[in-house]
Simulated scan of single mutants.
Amino acid sequence: MDITSLGITGVAVITVICYLIGQAVKVTGLDNKYIPVIVGTTGGILGVTAMFLMPDFPAADYMTAVAVGIVSGLAATGIHQVAKQMGGGNRGDRQ
């Protein structure tokens, strides 16, 4: 079985885009507590968009596409937190 047949690439694309949006929001000075909401919402929107643009996306209806997008967006926040914890501290991140 080929890994691209699972639609993993579409999920990874959403996660990377949401991660970059989260980093951009962090630079704006907006309170960091809003970043998960912003990346989750962005992920949901990108999930619906990906459903139409990517033939291998793992969702065929709106609700599943939104859910996959939200989870992918929130995964970007989790990836950042794991990297921060493994890196040995906050390194200047506002808390």
Rank of each mutant, 00 (worst) to 15 (best):
P36N: 09
V16G: 02
D93G: 03
T9Y: 08
K26D: 13
I14G: 03
V71A: 14
T4V: 12
G69R: 07
G87Y: 06
G40I: 11
M51S: 06
L20Y: 13
L53Y: 13
T49Y: 07
T28C: 03
M1K: 12
T64Q: 00
P36D: 12
T9S: 08
G89S: 05
G73W: 01
C18H: 01
N32G: 06
A12F: 02
A60C: 10
Q95L: 10
R94Q: 12
Y62H: 11
I45A: 13
G89N: 07
I38P: 02
F57Q: 03
I14V: 12
T15L: 07
P58Y: 09
Y34N: 08
T28D: 07
A12C: 01
A60M: 10
L20M: 15
D2S: 07
V25S: 00
G88D: 11
I21F: 05
G44D: 01
G10Q: 00
G10R: 00
G43W: 04
V25M: 01
P58M: 10
G47T: 02
V66C: 15
A67M: 15
G69A: 14
G22D: 13
T15S: 08
T49P: 01
G22P: 14
M51F: 10
T77W: 04
T41Y: 01
T15F: 03
F52L: 03
L46F: 11
P55C: 05
I21R: 10
G43S: 02
I21A: 15
G10Y: 05
M51P: 03
G73M: 04
G29K: 08
V37K: 05
T49L: 15
L46N: 09
G88P: 03
A59H: 01
A24S: 11
L30V: 15
V11S: 01
G44A: 13
V48D: 00
V16M: 13
D56F: 14
